[in-house]
């Protein structure tokens, strides 16, 4: 069984976002780039599945759509333990474009399980995984918090309102994963970092796909009103304010 893990290259989640070009883009100066947090957990789970020979996972490949600037993020994924990587050499203009590129990679290379994080921490779109599956005409399961392989078949736990559902789906499939899929992201060990230098990164040129959306301008969220402090000795005043001023209780 072959697993493909889709990874996105995003600013570290503690970054203070600043804009450039008249607020039309994000100022990348000084940004620390990381693997999108959900993709990192997704990669961790893929590697855990490969660790147990009973699961029959032969390889874990990572795919990324981005320019040469995102090479360090790909190397990091290899250092964590992915066997090889594919980079589609293009600026990721929108989810539709990215998903179309990854679907093309899957058509050529054939994977059984394609894993995507539920969203990227930059565009918060929650789109790429579902789009890949539709481009390929294969099933997808979203909000997946556990992925096992039993008797060669994936068994997935997905979150539903107020609970969980365990579903089985035949391969190939796209698993769109969220919190719970792995406990902690796996960290690259020194040996992994050394090995990552020689692992193959295949470069693929993009197909011509038109993006469907475009950000024209960014803005900062509206500032909140200053905090009104209530004396710790008299918390009952808070209840008064919530009832009579904010009118929320």
């Amino acid at each position: 069984m072959k697993i493909l893990v889709c990874i996105s290259n995003v600013p570290d989640t503690t970054t203070k976002i600043k804009f450039a070009e008249g607020n039309a883009s994000v100022d990348t100066a000084g940004i620390q780039w990381v693997i999108n947090p959900w993709d990192e957990l997704s990669l961790t789970r893929a590697l855990e599945l490969k660790d147990n020979p009973a699961n029959g996972v032969n390889s874990v490949t990572v795919v990324h759509v981005g320019t040469a600037a995102s090479e360090p993020t790909i190397r990091k994924a290899l250092a964590i333990g992915a066997d090889d990587a594919i980079r589609v050499n293009a600026d990721s203009s929108d989810a539709f474009f990215v998903a179309a590129q990854i679907a093309e990679v899957v058509r050529k290379e054939q994977f059984d399980i394609i894993m995507c994080g539920i969203e990227s921490s930059d565009y918060n779109g929650s789109l790429v995984g579902g789009m890949i599956s539709e481009f390929l005409g294969i099933p997808s399961v979203s909000a997946v918090s556990d992925l096992k392989i039993e008797n060669g078949q994936p068994l997935l736990t997905r979150e539903i309102d107020g609970g969980k559902e365990v579903v089985s789906v035949s391969v190939p499939l796209v698993a769109i994963v969220q919190k719970g899929i792995a406990k902690e992201p796996r960290i690259a060990a020194m040996r992994g970092i050394m090995m990552a230098r020689t692992k193959p990164v295949k470069l693929v040129e993009p197909m011509a796909v038109e993006s469907l959306t475009q950000v024209v301008v960014f803005e900062k969220p509206a500032p909140r009103a200053a905090c009104k402090y209530i004396d710790a000795e008299n918390p009952a005043q808070l209840i008064d304010l919530l009832q009579n001023e904010a009118k929320v209780i």
Binding site: A95, F96, I118, G125, L127, G129, G130, E134, S142, L212
Partner: peptide
């Protein structure tokens, strides 16, 4: 959860761009 599962698939079917969230 359900919307996030359905919207991207619809997008590809209808070649429709998505504004999410």
């Amino acid at each position: 959860n359900a919307g996030k599962a359905i919207a991207p698939r619809l997008s590809v079917r209808l070649k429709a761009g998505v504004g999410s969230g």
